[in-house]
Write a protein that binds this DNA or RNA. Structure first.
Lengths: 213, 213
DNA sequence: TTGCTTATTGGTCGCACACTCAATAGCATG
DNA sequence: CATGCTATTGAGTGTGCGACCAATAAGCAA
C-alpha cells in the first residue's frame, strides 16, 4: 500500500543519483537546517539506504557543504539573476530589496546564520561560505556597476557599496530565528536607505518612501 | 601525581556549586561554542561526574541557555557598563565602538551567531537570546538618551537609533567565523559612521576620522 | 563523637550519528 | 538471452550524547 515499503532497487546513473542527493540535501538544509543534513535523513528522503549516501559522499561534511552551496546558489539566482534582459538597474535593485526584505526571505537568512555558525567547526563548509559570500558580493557589485555606467547610480566604489548593503542585510537577517514583534519602519528600511544614500539616489527610489503622513 | 586522579569528593553548597557550573559553562560557551556545553564537558572542566551536572540541570538545554545568558551578561557589562560615573556620553560611546570593533570582540560575535542559530531548535535558549537582545538594546538606548539629555547627541528616537547601530554591528559580526582578508575601511567604520550620522555628530567624533590624506 | 541529611558518585540505558564492507541485484551491453 | 560491471543494500562498528537511579560518603548539627 504505502510507497515507503519499497523493496525493489532503482539503479540510476551516478550523475543523476548524485544530483538527486544534492537537491534533497539542499532542500533539507533550507527548510530544516544544515544539522539535519545527515546520511540517514537524506537517505530517508530519497527512500534509499544510508550506505548509498556514504558511497557518493564518503565524508558527510562534504555533503553538508554541497547542500549549502547548492541552496545558496539557487537563492542567489532568484534574488539577483545574472541575466537581466530588460529593466533599469534601479528596478532590478528595487526588486532585490523587495525579495530580501520579505518574510519569505527568512528561510534564507536562517540558512546563512546556520552556515556561518557551523563553518566554525567544519572547514569544508567554511570554504563554501567564503565562496558564496564572494559570489553574492560580486553579483550585487555587477548590478551596481551597471547602474553607474548607465548613469543611474553614483558611487566611488561599487564594491564597497555592495558590501555595505550586504552588511546591513546580514544585520537585519540575524534575528530571523528570534524575531517576535514588529520592527520600527526606520529599521526595516535600513537596507534600502543605505543603498539610496550610498548611490546618491533620492529617498523612495528603491522602495516605499519613508513615512507617508 | 596528576591532579586529575581525584578520588576524594568535595561537597559544596548547592548555590556555590551551581554558580561554579554556570561559570564553567559560560567560559566553554564563549571559547568553544554552545554545542560544547555538554554534561560530560562541563563535568570534566570541574573534575566531577556528569551525573552531578544533571542533578543541578535536569535538562541540559537549561544549562546551555544559562551559559549563554551568563556569558552575554558579562560581555555587556564590560562593553556598556551600567554605571558611568565620569566622562561624556560621546566618550562612553566611542569606547563602546573601540571594544565592539576590535579583534577581541570576535569571540563575542561568534557567541551571538552561535546562540541565534541554536535558538532555532532550543526554545529555552531562544528565550534567553530575546532577553539579551532587549538588555543590550536598552543599555545602549540609555547611553544615547543620556547623551541627548546632555545636549551631546541629537536624535528623534534614541531606541530606533540604538537598534540601527546594533543591526550594523550584527552585520559586521556575522563574518566572525569566515573573515579572511581585511575589509575596506569604509566598511569597518560602518558602525561608527551610522552612529555619527544618526546622532547628528561630525565625522570623527566617535572614532578615527575617515581617510586622512 | 555520633547520626543524618543530601551532595556526589558510578554505572546503565537508549538513541542518533558517521563510517566500513562484503554480498546482492539492476541493467546495459554483447 | 546471457554476462559482466557496478550501483545498491544490509549488517555491523564505534563514538558521544542526555537521561536515570541506587549506592555512597562529606560535613554539619546534635
Amino acid at each position: 500500500m504505502s510507497s515507503s515499503v519499497q523493496r525493489k532497487r532503482i539503479r540510476k546513473s551516478p550523475a543523476a543519483r548524485r544530483a538527486e542527493i544534492v537537491d534533497a540535501a539542499a532542500a533539507v538544509a533550507l527548510t530544516e537546517g544544515l544539522e539535519c543534513v545527515t546520511l540517514r535523513r537524506i537517505a530517508e528522503e530519497l527512500d534509499v539506504r544510508p550506505g548509498l549516501i556514504s558511497h557518493y559522499f564518503p565524508s558527510a561534511e562534504d555533503l553538508v557543504a554541497e547542500a549549502f552551496g547548492s541552496a545558496a546558489d539557487g537563492e542567489l539566482d532568484t534574488l539577483l539573476p545574472a541575466r537581466r534582459p530588460e529593466g533599469t538597474s534601479s528596478e532590478h535593485l528595487a526588486r532585490f530589496f523587495v525579495r530580501a526584505t520579505g518574510e519569505a526571505y527568512d528561510a534564507v537568512s536562517r540558512l546563512w546564520i546556520n552556515a556561518r555558525h557551523l563553518s566554525r567547526y567544519r572547514p569544508a563548509l567554511r570554504e563554501r561560505v567564503v565562496e558564496q559570500e564572494a559570489a553574492w558580493r560580486e553579483r550585487l557589485t555587477d548590478l551596481l556597476r551597471q547602474g553607474v555606467e548607465r548613469g543611474e547610480f553614483r558611487t566611488d566604489d561599487p564594491e564597497v557599496t555592495s558590501i555595505q548593503i550586504l552588511v546591513v542585510l546580514d544585520g537585519l537577517g540575524a534575528h530571523a530565528n528570534t524575531e517576535t514583534g514588529g520592527r520600527p519602519e526606520a529599521v526595516t528600511r535600513m537596507a534600502v536607505t543605505t543603498a539610496e544614500r550610498e548611490l546618491g539616489l533620492a529617498g523612495g527610489t528603491l522602495g516605499p518612501p519613508p513615512v507617508s503622513p
